[in-house]
């Protein structure tokens, strides 16, 4: 790759003018690096772009399918009601357990569940 450039590899650590190169040779070297550098950066990022377009083709449909599945679960009304009912029972059980634990830790203090409200 380095043979493409107008400057010898051994001179990379030196001021090029002091190493005997003229203005034209230095300018050519600078332009070569500018061209190769930008070309490489654009090539790599365009390659990632192509990969992302493939991503889109392959994977972009997946979220829609997931959404469809969710809708199917939520559509039948009786099932929804039973889900809510069982959820309520679970919540009541959790709150009751928390109160029981609090009672055991708070000497003599008593709690009583008055009502549950859905928000």
């Amino acid at each position: 790759m380095n043979t493409l450039l107008s400057i010898a590899e051994k001179d990379y650590t030196y001021n090029l003018f002091e190493s005997g190169y003229n203005l034209g040779e230095v300018a050519l070297f600078g332009l070569q690096m500018l061209g190769i550098g930008l070309l490489t950066v654009f090539s790599v990022l365009i390659l990632i772009w192509v990969a992302l377009i493939l991503f889109q083709k392959v994977f972009a449909k997946l979220p829609q399918e997931e959404k469809k599945k969710e809708v199917v679960v939520l559509t039948p009304a009786p099932e929804l009601a039973s889900v809510e009912q069982s959820a309520d029972e679970e919540i009541i059980a959790v709150i009751a357990a928390a109160i029981a634990m609090a009672e055991s830790e708070s000497n003599g203090l008593k709690f009583r569940v008055v009502s549950f409200k859905r928000k």
Partner: peptide, 23 residues
């Protein structure tokens, strides 16, 4: 993102003329 690397290689170019080595 690629276009924004223009300054990197242009500064390299100018630095050579100010007497800096390629590295």
């Amino acid at each position: 993102g690629a276009g924004s690397q223009l300054g990197v290689f242009f500064a390299f170019f100018v630095a050579l003329f100010l007497g800096f080595s390629p590295m």
